[in-house]
Amino acid sequence: MTSTASAGSPAAIELDGVTKRFGKVLALDGLDLRVGHGEVHGFLGPNGAGKSTTIRVLLGILRHGSGTARLLGGDPWRDAVALHRRLAYVPGDVELWPNLTGGEAIDLFARLRGGVDTAKRDELIERFDLDPRKKGRTYSKGNRQKVALISALASDVELLLLDEPTAGLDPLMEAVFQRCINEAKDEGRTVLLSSHILAQVEALADRLSIIRKGKIVETGTLEEMRHLSRTSVTVVTGEPIDRLADEPGVHDLVEEGGQTHFSVDTARLPQLMRELAAHDVRALTATPPTLEQLLLRHYGDELEEAGV
């Protein structure tokens, strides 16, 4: 590794053991995060887990405590200005100046980053169905969000930092957003997408990280995560299956009305299928774990504590 801070460095975002403390509250507790170039990385976690704090550390708006943070090969606090020329940020809660129009704000943000692609800007305004002549104070939350999104997407940048970027958008706009992110990916841009809309992350993300209480608890591709998780199986067999509950990796076995429901560690699935085949399978459905189930695995205890 002789390369210095350059585009040749291995990852767009590298956080190692990053901490951030607000008074007595430890918001980031040794967070590790790695996002490769050209990757769309989903960043999942509930409110207050530290998603926005992480992004603001990456922006150099907050200064982290211990640990190291590298962004596009540079130091996010020290090199903030140079780095910001190469990235665009969309916050979850966009505040605009009450007496500037949306169009002015779009141009301003893009120019402050280094330039606006006017054709792209106008095309995006069209696609997102925004009236750029209205003053900031008259926009709804969704429209303020569009202003920030259009400005970010119309900028020629390597990295998009999106913090719950579609929180106020309707489903039609959500679809437009997903197409735009796929286009950005095709152009080779890197995207860090913080979200709690699981369908969005499933549709867009190459890899994802789950954050909990300021720590990354799991990271990888969705497939890898599924592999570590359980598949739900419902099966109807001609012959009764004995000893299924004793098979390693089988959980939550329930029999009702001739159907057998259980979940199985995905790694054990091939072995189990061979076992089942010997029992005259008449019907079988197997569903891979949903993202929701993956999340629940990490947050289940909190839900229990909350009495859900």
């Binding site: 002015e104 141009d107 402050l112 009236d131 209205k134």
Partner: peptide, 19 residues
């Protein structure tokens, strides 16, 4: 009533000074 404004930023609105 509020009036509609410009759809584009003025040419000089491009820096922290302009803002």
């Amino acid at each position: 009533a509020d009036r509609l404004g410009s759809a584009h930023a003025a040419v000089w609105l491009r820096s922290s000074f302009g803002l």
